[in-house]
């Protein structure tokens, strides 16, 4: 082991490290931070879908969750949902109770007697179709992607079922379909939109608590909804660019 290392290795080492470092710098100069988010919002062209939910109108009937399961052939077990409803109950003593039995499909019961309730409400949940979606960002093969309309979709014939996106979604909106072995999630009923129909959950809602629309069109129902109401998104601190706007969202909701 006693060849004189001093002569070449150090130089080689420096040269090579220099080359590698240089390469990295070059690549990042050519492509500064472009890699970080999977899609870019198209400016002013085409549709850019978003969803609005009016919590004050939700009666917790679960029709949306049921219609969604049927429309999209989601497995019937209570562990797989593309959309579901949660019931929040904040008690007089400050305790927060949340429940979502079978995603709300079978309706809700209020476990707390009325006189102990400070406030209570339903929160329908679904995919946020984030503009900077953490889930499509981490898909290793590009099977989860964001469509040109701003919908986070899954190419099920290409998905490898690694579950990384399930971990990356802060809202718990994805699941692995146990039969197909691939991930599944809300598509905002892309197949219905293309046929001129409303998404199944919006069709099924008896009170019009859910709306969807084009955020690029400032006159669309959704744009007006966002403009006229005091809307908030879930977990804004994560900077997911969520496009699911809630009217009258309480701060207890995560």
């Amino acid at each position: 082991m006693a060849i004189n290392k001093e002569n070449y290795t150090r130089r080689d080492f420096i040269k090579n490290s220099g080359m590698i470092a240089g390469g990295v710098v070059l690549v990042s100069l050519l492509n500064p931070f472009k890699l970080v988010f999977a899609t870019k919002k198209p400016v002013g062209i085409g549709k850019w879908y978003g969803v609005g939910i009016d919590i004050e109108k939700c009666i917790g009937c679960g029709s949306c969750a049921r219609a969604c399961k049927i429309e999209n052939e989601v497995p019937n077990e209570p562990f797989f949902f593309r959309n579901w409803v949660e019931q929040y109950t904040i008690m007089n003593d400050g305790q927060i109770k949340v429940s979502s039995p079978n995603g709300g499909i079978d309706g809700f019961k209020q476990p707390v007697p009325d006189e102990n309730i400070y406030k209570t409400f339903f929160v329908p949940k679904m995919c946020n179709h984030c503009a900077k979606s953490p889930c499509t960002q981490v898909c290793p093969v590009g099977a989860s992607f964001e469509s040109p309309e701003g919908l986070a979709l899954v190419d099920q014939s290409y998905c490898i079922g690694c579950g990384y996106c399930v971990q990356a979604c802060p809202y718990g909106c994805r699941y692995i379909d146990p039969q197909k072995g691939v991930v599944d999630k809300c598509t905002l009923c892309y197949h219905r939109l293309e046929k001129g129909l409303n998404p199944a959950c919006m069709m099924a809602c008896p009170t019009g608590a859910r709306i969807y629309g084009d955020l690029n069109d400032k006159e669309s129902a959704l744009s007006l909804f966002v403009k006229e109401n005091n809307c908030a998104v879930l977990k804004p601190q994560l900077n997911t660019g969520s496009k699911l706007f809630y009217n009258a969202l309480s701060q207890e909701v995560h």
Binding site: L35, I160, G163
Partner: peptide, 28 residues
């Protein structure tokens, strides 16, 4: 372990053929 855990283990090659460059896992 990673491959056998996949829902679709036979599609593993996609990670090398069409790696999605924003994904930490694709670079694996």
């Amino acid at each position: 372990p990673l491959i056998t855990h996949l829902g679709q283990p036979l599609r593993f090659y996609e990670m090398l053929i069409t790696p999605h460059l924003t994904s930490a896992m694709a670079i694996f």
